[in-house]
Write a protein that binds this DNA or RNA. Structure first.
Lengths: 236, 236
DNA sequence: CAGTGGTCTAGACCACCGA
DNA sequence: CGGTGGTCTAGACCACTGG
């Protein structure tokens, strides 16, 4: 079936995937049991089990203990969306990254911020606003609030040398994060800061991160619509 | 350590994750070898191996054969972005889904479309434009081109009963897909079709799908910015 | 009840890395 | 070379499902 010398469990996975993508087995159909595949391939059950477990993780099949394995309802396309330090991202594209720092300050949480950070209204927070440039073109406006409990020395940083994202990942080990991506318009001020026209569409990512017991940071990231996109792909 | 009776491999995973999130081990630090953990927990190496393999898949650690296992550089937040049939998505939110069909036609591929579909210019394609409503509010404009080779009866469908996405997933088993998400503006026509103001920001998802030997479909999905968002979260 | 998947063991051989 | 992870085996016991 497969030309190269693949590990046995990969051969099993490839076999299952081929049957599905060729339409031999359709969503909801039963997949042969582990013992059946064990005999068919002449390998041990642990090896078959590994193959099937990985397929289940990939979302290709659904397994129900005591019942069996069926081809998953592929009514979704799943792919991993990686959210990375913009500095690394730009360097990897072979471009130059630079930063303009617009604001670095301590401030007091209003009711909304207090709720996000699970602190009381009026609690002390750090606040920074930066613009990130890729080869001199603004691609991200980063408006960030930081919990002093997670990064007490945040205000002393040189953000030209180390991005907030980088610093926080280093000093506040990440335990949890959530994000949402929507479309929005740049305000007059934001447009000026990004060097785009007012009313230009932007991707708006809002992201909060948790480190240990604290909500470490809340970031609002604004990307000019025609200069940035999130992309990904799915296979099989 | 852990209160409930967890499987051994889960206990190992939890131990490693705890050490990392507490900052005991930092990015780049070595993780104990499989044989060390095997002795520490009094379990077999296969079980330790399973735990470490899963942590590597999750991106928590990096393993190098012959060298060892180190705590991964967590300079990214990875999460699964699921792209699903909008019909299912709306129903799951407990809302009502309806569709208006604006266009259903056969047409000829221009150079750009031909390239995407890997067909010659002038090749026959199907084309549909639909608006999807959630409880009567327009949330998606779906402009889609379909390869007749993948879905010969596409034009005969009743899109009020079955979304294009649903039909294609059923009839053209998915083998590959890629997408990109950007911000854009609705054109005057699109704004009218979605019932929004001209110049309103929108999320624009462009998605192409491959089924077996054919590029099956290319969709341009327009979401009014304030009515839809992609979101996700990451743990650990 | 028999069959399924979930977990686990105690070995084994290999490819690879660094000293 | 010794230590690492990558793979594999031939058993085992369990929890769960279905008829």
């Amino acid at each position: 079936m497969t030309p190269a010398k693949l590990p046995a469990y990969e051969q099993v996975k490839a076999f299952i995937k081929t049957q599905i993508s060729r339409g031999v087995w359709r969503a909801g159909d039963a997949v042969p049991s582990e013992s059946a595949l064990q005999q068919q391939f002449g390998i041990s059950r642990m090896t078959v089990n590994r193959a099937m477990k990985e397929l289940a993780v990939e979302g290709v099949v659904t397994r129900i203990q005591g019942s069996g394995t069926v081809v998953a309802q592929l009514h979704r396309i799943s792919s991993t969306l990686a959210i990375r330090d913009i500095h690394d991202e730009i360097l990897e594209r072979g471009h130059r990254h630079s930063t303009t720092v617009l604001t670095v300050e301590a401030m007091r949480a209003d009711a909304a911020l207090a709720q996000v950070f699970k602190l009381r209204t009026g609690a002390r927070l750090f606040h920074s606003v930066l613009v990130h440039f890729e080869d001199g073109v603004a691609i991200q406006l980063e408006d960030r609030h930081v919990n002093p409990a997670s990064a007490p020395h945040y205000l002393e940083l040189d953000f030209n040398a180390c991005t907030p994202t980088h610093y926080l990942l280093e000093h506040a080990p990440l335990t949890e994060a959530s994000y949402s991506i929507e479309a929005g318009l740049a305000s007059a001020q934001e447009a000026r800061q990004l060097g785009i026209k007012r009313g230009e569409p932007c991707l708006v990512m809002t992201r909060s991160t948790v480190s240990g017991p604290h909500v470490a940071s809340l970031a609002r990231l604004l990307y000019p619509g025609n200069r940035y996109s999130f992309s990904g792909n799915f296979q099989l």
